[in-house]
Design a protein around this nucleic acid. Structure first.
Lengths: 335, 335
DNA sequence: CTGAAAGCGCTTACAG
DNA sequence: CTGAAAGCGCTTACAG
C-alpha cells in the first residue's frame, strides 16, 4: 500500500507551499499556530516521515556510524556490539556492521568503502592479520579523509585517534601477584594471541610480576596443534601450579587438557582465563576469569566517536581511555 | 585534509558540464573516448567517489538492509549475522544492525524507525516477548508499508513474508529415535525456550518419537532457578538415561548439574544439546549437539530478501525455506 | 558528442 | 506569517 507521502504532496493537499510545511513540522516560530496545527494533523493522518536520505543529503551527514568487528563469533565482540548499538540508538545513529574476519584484505576493502562517505564515523578493532603484517596505511588513509575514527579493544597502534581498551597489562600482573600471595610460585601462561597487541600486554603483565626470569613458563601459538602440545608440556612436564589463559581458545584448551590428563582443577592446578561469564560459570569446575565489561567498551567507544563527529573536541589531542577489568573468582582458583 | 571532491568541482576543473562528467564516469557511449579518458584520469587523481547519499536519493533506494537480532550474545545469532554480512557485502548492501534484547517495545521502536525508509528491506528474528504476547501489529505494519521482510530462525508466525528456519521438529525427533535404537528408553528434555515457536517444535519432535505418553519427561522454565530445580528432578529422581537440551542455557545447565550430582556423562546420562561447536568440543566430556548452520541461514536470508527487493519474485507467494540440521556426535552420547 | 534543465525530497536564507 | 528560490550531489531525458 502507501507509497510514502512526501512534503510536496502534503503541501498540495493543504494548499500551502513546501517551505511552509517543512517549517511547520519543525515548529518554526515563523509559522502561525493555526497552520502548524493543520499541517501536523494531516502529517499524522498520512503518517508522514521525512525521507532520511534527503535530510542527510542536505545536512551532508549520513546519520550512521560504521563498526568493524574482527570476529563476531567471539562473545566479547558480540557484547561490544551490543553496547555500541544501545548507545548509538540513544544518539539517533544507525550502526552499520562490517566483519573483517581477521583479514587485512577485507579490512582494506571496508575502509576503502567508508572513504566514500557512507558513515559519519568508524569504530575499529584491527584485524589480526593487520597487526601481524603491520600494514596500517588504509587506517591512516581514513584519518586523512577526515573521517572520525575510534579504535576499540585492539588499540596498540600509533594512529592519532581516540582509543578505548582495557588494562591488559595490569589484569594479568595483578592476577599473577594474587596467586603469589597465596603461595603459588610456579605460574604459567597460555595464549593464542601473543602476536596481538593485547596479547603481548597480557604476557608483559604476567612477566612483570615474576620474581625471576626462570619462573617464566609460556605456551604460545596461534596454531591449535602447536598450542596443544606446548600446553601439555606446561601442565604435564613442567607441572605448573597455576596457569593464566589470555583468550577464549587457550582457556578452553587448558580446561579440556587438564581433564584429559587427569589434572584436578583447582587442587592440582589453578586457572584464570579470559572468557565470558555465561560460559565460565557453567564449566566443571567453573573457571575464574577476567571480566572485561565489553558492553561498556562499546558504549564508551560511541561516546568518544559522537564527541568527534559533533566536533565537541575539535582539534583536541586524541583521548586514551582504559576500562578497568575485574577478576571474578569461581571454583578454578579455589579461594 | 581533502574535503571530498564533487562532480561539480571535477566538471569545473575539466571545463565540461556536470552531465558530461557523470556520463563519462559511467562509460556512457554518448561521450567521446577522449573525454572519458580525461575525466577518469582526473577522477582517479582526486580519488573521486560518488556521494552514496545523493545516488540513493536519485534512485530512491538506500542501499542498506536492516537486521533485527534478539540477542547478539547468543553465538547462534552472532554467526547468523556473520553470514548476513558476508552475503550482503557481495550484493553491495550495507547491513544496519538492531538489537531488540528480546524486548517487544524495542522491536516496535525499531520497526517504527524502519517505516521511514532507512532501509530497502529487513531481516527479523522476532523477540521472545513479542512471541509470548503475540503482539504482531508492528510487523504487519512493516509489510503494509511495502518494505520487504524476511523472517529468520524464529519463523513461527502467520505473516505473509519469506521465511527461513531450521527443521526444529525433525532435529529432536531424529535424535530421540536414534537414542531409542541404541536401547535407551527413558529420555527427557530440558528447555528454557518452551514458549518460543522453535522451542515448541523441538519439544513436539521429541514427543513424536516417544512410544508412550508416560515416557514424557520435561524440565521447562525460562527462570533459571525453576529450570535448575526441574532439571535436578529429572536427573536425580526420575533418573533419565538421556536428555535432550533445546538451547544453550539448558545444555550448559544439564552439563553442570550432572557434575554437581556426580552423574557420569555419558555412562549414566547421554546428552544432546543445542550449542555451538566451539564450546561443545572443549567441554569435559565434549557434548554432542545439533549443528544449525547459522552462517547459511544468514546467507539464505539475504538472498531471499534481495530477490524481493529487486522484485525478481514480485507477486509470488511467500517462500518457506528450511535448513537441515545435523547431529554431531561427541563424547556425551558415547556412540 | 556535449550541455542545460529537471528532478530525487528535503532545508533555509531571503523577499514580500 | 507565507512562499519562491537556491542548493545538498547526483542522474538522465531531452535539445542542440
Amino acid at each position: 500500500m502507501k507509497n510514502k507521502i512526501t512534503l510536496k504532496e502534503l503541501a498540495k493537499l493543504l494548499n500551502v507551499s513546501v517551505s511552509t510545511v517543512s517549517k511547520a513540522l519543525h515548529d518554526s516560530p515563523e509559522i502561525s499556530p493555526k497552520t502548524v496545527e493543520r499541517v501536523k494533523e494531516l502529517a499524522k493522518l498520512h503518517k508522514y516521515r521525512p525521507n532520511p536520505v534527503a535530510v542527510n543529503l542536505k545536512s551532508s551527514k549520513s546519520g550512521t556510524i560504521g563498526v568493524i568487528i574482527p570476529n563476531i563469533a567471539n562473545t566479547f565482540f558480540a557484547n561490544v556490539l551490543s553496547g555500541i548499538e544501545a548507545r548509538a540508538q540513544k544518539a539517533g545513529l544507525q550502526v552499520i556492521t562490517y566483519i573483517s574476519n581477521e583479514s587485512l584484505a577485507r579490512e582494506q576493502q571496508i575502509t576503502e568503502m567508508l572513504t566514500s562517505g557512507f558513515v559519519d564515523g568508524v569504530l575499529i578493532a584491527i584485524s589480526e592479520e593487520t597487526q601481524r603484517k603491520k600494514e596500517y596505511e588504509h587506517l591512516f588513509n581514513l584519518v586523512d579523509y577526515d573521517i572520525p575514527v575510534v579504535l576499540y579493544d585492539r588499540v596498540n597502534l600509533d594512529l592519532p585517534v581516540d582509543k578505548i581498551g582495557i588494562d591488559d597489562e595490569h589484569s594479568f600482573e595483578d592476577a599473577t601477584r594474587l596467586l603469589q600471595t597465596r603461595g603459588i610460585e610456579k605460574i604459567g601462561i597460555a595464549t593464542s594471541i601473543h602476536h596481538l597487541g593485547v596479547g603481548k600486554l597480557r604476557i608483559t603483565g604476567y612477566r612483570n610480576a615474576l620474581k625471576d626470569e626462570k619462573d617464566f613458563y609460556i605456551a604460545n601459538s596461534s596454531k591449535p596443534d602447536t598450542l596443544r602440545e606446548k600446553t601439555r608440556k606446561l601442565l604435564v612436564e613442567d607441572k605448573v601450579e597455576a596457569i593464566l589463559c589470555s583468550d577464549f581458545e587457550s582457556t578452553m584448551l587448558v580446561y579440556r587438557m587438564a581433564y584429559e590428563n587427569k589434572i584436578k582443577i583447582p587442587d592440582d592446578l589453578k586457572v584464570i582465563g579470559f572468557i565470558n561469564g555465561d560460559v565460565a560459570r557453567y564449566l566443571t569446575p567453573s573457571i575464574s576469569y577476567v571480566e572485561q565489561f565489553p558492553g561498556e567498551i562499546g558504549e564508551e567507544a560511541v561516546e568518544l566517536l559522537v564527541d568527534r563527529i559533533e566536533n565537541r573536541v575539535a582539534g583536541k589531542p586524541p583521548i586514551n581511555k582504559t576500562i578497568r577489568t575485574k577478576l571474578i573468582h569461581m571454583e578454578s582458583t579455589g579461594f
